[in-house]
Design a protein around this nucleic acid. Sequence first.
RNA 1: GGGGGUGUAGUUCAGUCGGUUAGAACGCCGGCCUGUCAAGCCGGAGGUCGCGGGUUCGAGCCCCGUCGCUCCCGCCA
Length: 605
Amino acid sequence: MNRSGYCNEIREGHIGQRVTVCGWVNRRRDHGGVIFIDLRDRSGMVQAVFSPERQPEVHRQAHELRSEYVVRLVGEVARRPQETENPKLPTGMIEIHVDSLEVLNVAQFLPFQLDEEGVGESTRLQHRFLDLRRPEMQHNLQFRHRVTQTVRRTLDEAGFLEIETPMLTRSTPEGARDYLVPSRVNPGQFYALPQSPQLFKQLLMIGGYDRYFQVARCFRDEDLRADRQPEFTQIDLEMSFVVADDVMAVAEQVMGKIFEEALKQSLPLPLPRLTYNEAISRYGLDAPDLRIPLELTDLTAVMRHTGFKVFAQAANQSGNRGGRGLVKALRVPGGAQMTRKQIDDYTEFVAIYGAKGLAWIKLNGPWQEEGWQSPIVKFFSPEEKEAIVAATGAQTGDILFFGADRASIVNESLGRLRVKIGRELNLLNGTPFSFVWVTDFPLLDWDNEARRHVAVHHPFTAPVLADLQRLDNTAMAEESHLDEVRSQAYDLVLNGTEIGGGSIRIHDPALQQKMLALLGIEAAEAEEKFGFLLRALEFGAPPHGGLAFGLDRLVAILLGVDSIRDVIAFPKTQKAGCVLTQAPSSVDPLQLRELHLRSTYQPKG
RNA sequence: GGGGGUGUAGUUCAGUCGGUUAGAACGCCGGCCUGUCAAGCCGGAGGUCGCGGGUUCGAGCCCCGUCGCUCCCGCCA
């Protein structure tokens, strides 16, 4: 045996026993006489004591120890002397009196101190192997492990089979940009890395596996964010002979177990639900953070005839779902105390989302006595003021922010402002974790640049049956009809972030073909790109549906860390590079020749 | 593709109005020290101020360019 156990397992019950422990020297405290070291491994730390009286030779050796040396030591567990216990450590009641010390490896002095806070991420990533030793990263990755193991066990017990799907697959239209892999044996042809196992899991349902899951790596070659990496992990699952409620119930069961086993908390089920329309109407976003007790109020009807042109124009503008005009208000209780600077900052903030301005009214007193402070209040009639008060429930001391523009701009800008204000003013209420299902997403969205419809979820999502006829009588034009078609898609939102999503899929080949046609994919192209799926649907495809969780995001939120890079062992930078391995890199010209490739890239200068 | 932030010792940062030899803390190295746990005390070493150019008598500081990292918009079914 190399060691008798982990550092952090030693307790008072071991007093008097001989132990052998291995680990890293976290810190040495050399008193000239007695020397202490904190020995650290993945479990935690234990104090080892070298005294000249006990083992003079070993004590001399201990002088040479430095931070992050790897050692094995043998000694006797002893109760610490009175008044020297350390309540900050779980092992703080005891220490190891060392009888022999073996230096398994030395370490150069460190590029950064492992116990220092606020070390730059770039430094940490360059020496990730050191960063990973830090207790915080140890905790994050061990927690992540707990979550994935819980998922595996829970789904296994619910009858799901874990099945792997190809990483080298074919590129399909729609969705994100693919990562491509050139084929050596098929000159000029390319594999794509999967954006998700979507089509394969549907084929597994058609193959009769009934309940499938996978901890799947997915790849998307798009620009990065704090919660987006070029490769990321999904908990992917699919079920046959189900309706949306069945899939959501399984997802809730998994989430409940994660809370129980990884967080040691209970999660009240079932989770609350909102329809997409309700979410947009009340919160402006399809991933609302329900911890924030603010809502948007629709004032469009009230503002149709107002003397304030900006509002009147928006209120009377017609269009389809996101394009019609809208006037909405966000009421912030107590917000009348905001400074001009704050309001200017918020105005700048909403501009990011296309808002041309941010109208506001401070209610310093009752409206009848002109106690309103605002650049726009002079345009409103007494009736309009009364209607604003009635609709928003505004009270003295509040501030109202207004958005008037296309619906998509008003909802997004006020929706984001709601979140920003809620977090900045510390209005978050209730539990630290707030879940909500968002259901009944629209099936299609109009892409103004491409001049065609695109799938809101993906092209295999089934419409709500009651809306099916709208697809028929509007095969070509009549966009507005198509805008009203709902899909059987659902997202799970946690604290304002989408952490999972899925849908009931189309299992009828005719409907699938019609769907592809609506997306502007010609029959020939559909056959070429999706023929394997269309054919499979013709051979007894069961009704099926599923869902995928973004594991990185989920773990990050549960741990309360800001970036998913802190829950990934070897993440990439914003330019999709790895500072540790220097990937991506140029390759030997011979490799390119074998792949029948030549780069057209011309370095600048 | 666009907007914001940032880059000074190994690390985290300070650096005034453009002005003498660029500082601090921690770390590192050496010495002292027998109950510390962010050990303590004394001493020491350590800088291409991201890189390139410009303005100036003089640039860490101003200007232009460029690179890295980061946050956001677009994009990401």
